[in-house]
């Protein structure tokens, strides 16, 4: 993030660097939102939910439909959160839980089935062409906050600020929910030790469903905000974001919420700064950078920055 001066020299000014980094942080916040959803599921039931991105995409379409029915957009987002949370809980309860006894491969396959189904479902229901993107935040050309004025200005769009705000708000809500409420304590108890939690009378199955439902909240936010930030609303909008989010979760450590957020922001910044530093890479190579980052992290430190090392017994 602190590039050596000879690369900076004359050609790229400070405001440009600031805007590169802030673009990275804005994208990173989107990755972080989806990564939080992935980590929430992983911590609860140990599944990597490959379908999380597609769930978020369906959420974005649901918001679109509710707005079309005349709801204000934030009300539509809240309603969608409730609907998708219920649907996720039902999937955990009806599909994932019965498959638990068949082991990890079976649940992985089931999740892939959901991925394929959700993607194709959206194509069939809402069509394969791009719809009008969602606009939770004002996004006119004038809706910007000027940080540095002058002839080389540095401004932040309200969308960028809104994405950051949404991420911070989500983290505060999650923190209150998980540390201050009885439900949150039960959730953490189940994560820390399933059988002990069951022994003291916590309904583990219910908590599992709660974990999946909880993931729908950041998932819906990720879908709606990605739609605005990338000006897309179609059935394949979340596939790349999913890869970035997975990379983020890996970098941060799959069992850490803080890790997901830090990882997401880091991946976003790396993705936008590296092509600036090495113009030879060219634009549009973000995914490849993410893949390299993913491989490096997995080989050097598979548990991620904040994760705990797994110990396996035979």
């Amino acid at each position: 993030m602190n590039p050596s001066t000879h690369i900076l020299a004359a050609e790229v000014s400070l405001p440009e660097w600031l805007s590169t980094v802030s673009t990275g942080l804005a994208n990173g916040a989107l990755y972080a939102l989806l990564a939080v959803a992935l980590v929430t599921v992983y911590r609860t039931t140990g599944h990597l939910n490959f379908a999380q991105g597609e769930f978020a995409m369906i959420s974005a379409f649901l918001v679109f439909t509710f707005v079309g029915m005349g709801m204000p957009i934030w009300v539509a987002i809240l309603v969608t959160m409730v609907v998708t949370a219920a649907a996720s809980a039902a999937l955990q309860f009806g599909v994932m839980r019965p498959l638990e006894s068949r082991g990890h491969s079976a649940s992985l396959i089931a999740v892939l089935g959901m991925f394929l189904f959700a993607n194709s479902f959206a194509g069939v229901v809402w069509g394969v062409d791009n719809k009008t993107p969602l606009a939770p935040f004002p996004d006119g050309t004038e809706d910007r906050l000027t940080i540095i004025g002058g002839d080389r200005p540095f401004t932040l769009s309200f969308v960028t600020l809104g994405v950051w705000g949404a991420l911070i708000a989500l983290l505060i809500v999650l923190w209150i929910l998980l540390s201050k409420t009885k439900l949150g304590v039960a959730y953490r108890a189940v994560i820390s030790n399933r059988s002990s939690a069951a022994l003291v009378g916590i309904p583990v199955a219910g908590v599992f469903a709660f974990g999946w439902a909880l993931a729908a909240v950041p998932g819906t936010l990720a879908g709606a905000l990605t739609s605005q930030a990338t000006s897309t609303l179609n059935f394949s909008m979340m596939i790349n974001v999913l890869i970035f989010a997975f990379t983020a979760a890996c970098v941060g450590g799959f069992d850490s919420l803080v890790g997901a957020v830090v990882g997401g922001l880091l991946v976003g910044v790396v993705e936008s700064v590296v092509p600036r530093l090495f113009p030879a890479i060219g634009t549009g190579s973000g995914l490849m950078i993410a893949l390299v980052l993913l491989l490096v992290v997995l080989v050097i430190r598979p548990q991620g920055m904040f994760g705990q090392k797994e110990v396996t017994r035979v």
Binding site: R102, I109, A110, G113, M114, L116, F117, N119, S120
Partner: peptide, 23 residues
């Protein structure tokens, strides 16, 4: 039945069902 893009829907549903009934 479900149009050209629908094959993936069938594959997806089949994957989940297979895990239940015919692993």
């Amino acid at each position: 039945v479900v149009g050209g893009t629908g094959a993936n829907m069938v594959y997806g549903a089949l994957l989940v069902l297979l895990m239940f009934f015919m692993p």
